[in-house]
Amino acid sequence: MITVLVVDDQFLIRAGLVGLLRAAPGIEVVGEASDGAEAVALAAEKAPEVILMDIRMPGLNGIDATERILAQAADPAPRTLVLTTFDLDEYVYGALRAGACGFLLKDSGPERLLAAVAPVSGGDALFAPSVTRRLVEAYARQTVGAPPVDLGTLTNREREVLKLIARGLSNPEIADRLFISEATVKTHLNRTMTKLDLDSRAQAVVMAYESGLVTPGR
């Protein structure tokens, strides 16, 4: 059973999501929140596996709520999916930077929503890596004043894998490119995320661009 917390400040949208999820087999809605502060409190209390997080809310927005939830969560941390109206959204970029695993458009159909919850709960990517890359490239140039990222702790192979992930390659594609197994790719990625204190693959992509390891448009 996959446990889910639904966060949206609009009652009708939140009620629709909750009703859809509760009707689906293998999913249990453990709570619903109308703002970011309530989401932080419920995440700590219920420890959901997946959080559907509205990005634009009054008070504590989805970016700050995601950051606080991940900071206080015990392992395994919940996997956060951002709910948004536009895929090229600076707020979504901020959420990925904070550790969200991916995003869903609010006008996605029920099948898309239900199909997203299970793989994300297991740690898999929600959408094609190219979608993450397109979003990150749109906003990575704007991160003025971001703290410098030190990749000095990474091995050459870990840097190589991180660069290919940021370029939009999947694990099988990286394995084929580097003549290693998919399990080895995952090992390098997991070690990279541990060393850099990252919570998601999407956050690793953001880090690769902001560190200068990968340059937008090249």
Results as ranks from 00 to 15, higher is better:
residue 114 L to W: 07
residue 115 A to K: 05
residue 115 A to I: 05
residue 115 A to T: 11
residue 116 A to I: 06
residue 117 V to A: 01
residue 117 V to F: 02
residue 118 A to V: 15
residue 118 A to Y: 03
residue 118 A to T: 14
residue 119 P to I: 07
residue 119 P to A: 03
residue 120 V to Q: 07
residue 121 S to T: 11
residue 121 S to I: 07
residue 121 S to A: 15
residue 122 G to V: 10
residue 122 G to E: 12
residue 122 G to P: 09
residue 123 G to P: 03
residue 123 G to M: 02
residue 123 G to K: 01
residue 123 G to E: 01
residue 124 D to M: 04
residue 125 A to C: 03
residue 125 A to Q: 14
residue 126 L to K: 01
residue 127 F to E: 09
residue 127 F to W: 05
residue 128 A to F: 07
residue 128 A to L: 10
residue 128 A to C: 06
residue 128 A to E: 12
residue 129 P to D: 07
residue 129 P to F: 11
residue 129 P to E: 05
residue 130 S to T: 05
residue 130 S to G: 04
residue 131 V to Q: 13
residue 132 T to L: 15
residue 132 T to Q: 13
residue 132 T to Y: 15
residue 134 R to D: 01
residue 134 R to F: 02
residue 134 R to P: 00
residue 135 L to N: 02
residue 136 V to A: 01
residue 137 E to V: 02
residue 138 A to V: 04
residue 138 A to N: 04
residue 138 A to T: 05
residue 138 A to S: 09
residue 138 A to K: 03
residue 139 Y to M: 08
residue 142 Q to W: 06
residue 142 Q to I: 07
residue 143 T to G: 06
residue 143 T to L: 09
residue 144 V to E: 11
residue 145 G to E: 11
residue 145 G to F: 12
residue 145 G to W: 12
residue 146 A to K: 10
residue 147 P to C: 08
residue 147 P to N: 04
residue 147 P to Q: 11
residue 147 P to E: 07
residue 147 P to M: 10
residue 148 P to M: 08
residue 149 V to G: 03
residue 150 D to I: 02
residue 150 D to L: 02
residue 151 L to F: 09
residue 151 L to K: 11
residue 152 G to Q: 06
residue 152 G to N: 03
residue 153 T to M: 00
residue 154 L to D: 00
residue 154 L to N: 01
residue 154 L to I: 03
residue 155 T to M: 05
residue 155 T to W: 06
residue 155 T to Y: 00
residue 156 N to S: 15
residue 156 N to P: 14
residue 157 R to M: 14
residue 157 R to S: 12
residue 158 E to F: 04
residue 160 E to Q: 15
residue 160 E to R: 14
residue 161 V to K: 01
residue 162 L to F: 06
residue 162 L to T: 07
residue 162 L to G: 01
residue 163 K to R: 14
residue 163 K to F: 09
residue 164 L to M: 15
residue 164 L to T: 13
residue 164 L to C: 08
residue 164 L to S: 11
residue 164 L to W: 10
residue 165 I to W: 09
residue 165 I to E: 10
residue 166 A to Y: 14
residue 166 A to T: 13
residue 166 A to D: 11
residue 167 R to K: 15
residue 167 R to S: 14
residue 167 R to W: 15
residue 168 G to Q: 11
residue 169 L to P: 09
residue 169 L to T: 08
